[in-house]
Amino acid sequence: MNDIHALSGAYAVDALSDEERAGFEEHLEACPTCREEVDSLREAAALLPTTTETAPSPAVRAAVLASIAQVRPLPPLVAHGPENDAEASRSTGTVVPLRRHRFRTALVAAAAAVIVAGGVGVGISQLDDTDGTSQQADPEPTQDETEDEVQQVLTASDVQIVDASTTLPEGTEASVHWSPSLGKAVLVTDGMPAAPHGHLYELWYQNSAGDMVRAGLMPEGESNTVLLEGDGSGAKAVGITVEPAPHGSEEPSMPPVAFFALEDA
């Protein structure tokens, strides 16, 4: 049994660091044995609170019942064809496997964790911050160099085209062309709605530690081909969030509106 399997127990009782957790969740996608074990260990752990039962105050019950009346239960995850899944890859019409949704949930959680942890100010990210934020608003190296790099990614031998899981409206097409060997990604959009007034779209890499690292700002316009800034080596995902114009944010201020789960080559 190699090391990663041994994390199943700690995972089942939320005793992993964020980084380990992200790594183990990735492992779980590919390891049915661990999934089963985690499920069974959670079953066991769920018995522990039999020894600590304590009723909450009636006020909690009242508050819960009042709040559910105002909240719509989420729809089930459906094994979707293109027509009933506006979130899926409309550009290709391929059936998006269920696991992408699970990844998406994980990513939202990860993003949320980043936001929560944000106040601590731990900056492990390799954000290239030499020019501060001003450089971000106006993407410049020269047009030509950027153009070349875009072409390099699009034509890389190991390029993968990853469709979005997105909450953007139907008709939005967004995909990421990802080259693991170059550690670079290009985002291609079509039919992208304008960001809300006073806001723009900001791009992020989720690095191998699970942190969201700034990767530049999207130019305005519904059709764009954008090279993500910075080094994406080892990135696990690309995300797009809505952030205040003109400079964006240092950290995602909300869950991404679109996600692209990258897989290692």
Partner: peptide
């Protein structure tokens, strides 16, 4: 490992999962 082994023992003793 201790956590995992402990949970496994609990699971098996309780006959769940």
């Amino acid at each position: 490992t201790r956590i995992r082994d402990g949970l496994i023992r609990l699971r098996d003793a309780m006959g769940v999962g």
